[in-house]
C-alpha cells in the first residue's frame, strides 16, 4: 500500500508540471482554435531563457516569473506575425498545424544554434524533502503544484466569472458570430496568446527544474504529455487539463512502481485512449469549436 501511495505522490508532482503546460495549451487551443505544435519548442526556449537568467545569479522563482512574461510577449508576436495572417488568408486547420510543426522545428534549430546541442542544467533546485504519511515531495515540487493550482483556478474564474471570459468563450465557440455581437475578437485572441504564452514560460522552467538537466529536445518531448492531458481533460477546460495532467503523471508513476518502467508511457497513453473511448470529448467537455473538431 505504501508503494502505491508513494507512487501517487510522485505522480502528482510530475502531473503538476505537465498540468502547468497543459493548462496553457488547452486555453490556447480552446479559444484560438489553433493546434499549436510550436508550443513544444517554445517550452524549450523558456527553459533556456530560465537557464540564462539563473546563470546571471537570479533566484529560480524570479526567473520563472520573468520567463513567463517574456514568453507571453513572444507568444503574442508569434501569433500576430505568423498564425494570424494564415488564418486571415483562410489557411485550413491542418495547414496551420503543419506550419506550427515547421515553425517548431525551425525554432528548435535556432535553439541549437544559440545554445548548442549539449545538455545544460539548472542544478539541484529541488529543495528539502517534505513527507506526508507515505507521500514524498520536494519543496520545489510543492511550489510548482501550488502555481499550477492557482493559475488553473484563476483561469477558470476568468473564463466563467468575468465579462472578458465570456467574450473568450464566445470567440472560441464561433468567432464570426462573436465579432458580429461586437466582441473585439482580435483583442481576445491576443490576450489568449498572452496567457498561454505565460503558462508556457512557467511550464518550461518548471519542466527544467523537474528534469534537472535538459537539452534542445526538452519541449517537444513533453508536449505530447501536455496535449494528452489537455485532450483528456476536455479542450478549453483549465481544470480538465489540470486533472488530465494528474492522470497522466499518476498513471505513469504507478505503472513504473508496479511494472517495467520502460513501458510507463504506454500505460499512460493506454489510459488516455480508454478514457476517450468512454468520453470522446474528454472528462469535462466544452462547446468550443476545437473540442468539437477533436471529437469529430
Amino acid at each position: 500500500m505504501s508503494v502505491l501511495i508513494e507512487a501517487i505522490g510522485f505522480g502528482i508532482a510530475l502531473g503538476a508540471v505537465i498540468a502547468l503546460g497543459a493548462v496553457g495549451f488547452t486555453v490556447q487551443f480552446g479559444i484560438s482554435n489553433v493546434l499549436n505544435i510550436t508550443y513544444g519548442a517554445l517550452l524549450t526556449v523558456a527553459a533556456y531563457l530560465g537557464y540564462y537568467l539563473l546563470q546571471l545569479g537570479w533566484n529560480v522563482w524570479v526567473a520563472l516569473a520573468v520567463t513567463s512574461v517574456a514568453m507571453a510577449v513572444l507568444s503574442v508576436i508569434f501569433n500576430r506575425l505568423l498564425l494570424a495572417p494564415l488564418s486571415r488568408r483562410g489557411t485550413s486547420f491542418v495547414g496551420v498545424v503543419i506550419v506550427t510543426v515547421a515553425a517548431g522545428i525551425i525554432l528548435q534549430y535556432c535553439v541549437v544554434a544559440v545554445a548548442g546541442p549539449d545538455t545544460v542544467s539548472y542544478g539541484q533546485l529541488s529543495g528539502s524533502t517534505v513527507k506526508f504519511a507515505d507521500l514524498v515531495f520536494t519543496t520545489s515540487q510543492l511550489i510548482i503544484l501550488a502555481i499550477a493550482v492557482v493559475l488553473m483556478v484563476a483561469l477558470h474564474m476568468l473564463l466563467t466569472r468575468t465579462q472578458f471570459g465570456r467574450a473568450m468563450r464566445a470567440t472560441s465557440a464561433n468567432p464570426v458570430v462573436a465579432r458580429g455581437c461586437g466582441i473585439d475578437t482580435d483583442r481576445v485572441i491576443d490576450v489568449t496568446w498572452l496567457i498561454s504564452g505565460a503558462l508556457c514560460g512557467a511550464a518550461g522552467v518548471a519542466l527544467a527544474i523537474s528534469t534537472v538537466t535538459f537539452d534542445f529536445t526538452l519541449g517537444p518531448t513533453f508536449l505530447i504529455y501536455m496535449i494528452a492531458a489537455a485532450v483528456l481533460g476536455g479542450i478549453g477546460q483549465p481544470h480538465g487539463a489540470m486533472l488530465g495532467g494528474m492522470v497522466v503523471g499518476v498513471v505513469s508513476q504507478v505503472a513504473s512502481a508496479y511494472s517495467n518502467p520502460a513501458y510507463q508511457d504506454a500505460y499512460a497513453f493506454a489510459v488516455l485512449i480508454l478514457m476517450l473511448l468512454i468520453r470522446p470529448r474528454g472528462l469535462f467537455s466544452a462547446g468550443t469549436a476545437s473540442a468539437r473538431r477533436l471529437a469529430g
Binding site: E6, F10, S210
Partner: peptide
C-alpha cells in the same frame, strides 16, 4: 534490474524501487 525510458521528467518511482 530495471530498464528506464530516456529523458523522463521523473524517475521517482524507479528510484524508490
Amino acid at each position: 534490474n530495471i530498464t528506464i525510458p530516456g529523458d523522463a521528467s521523473s524517475y521517482s518511482s524507479v528510484v524508490a524501487k
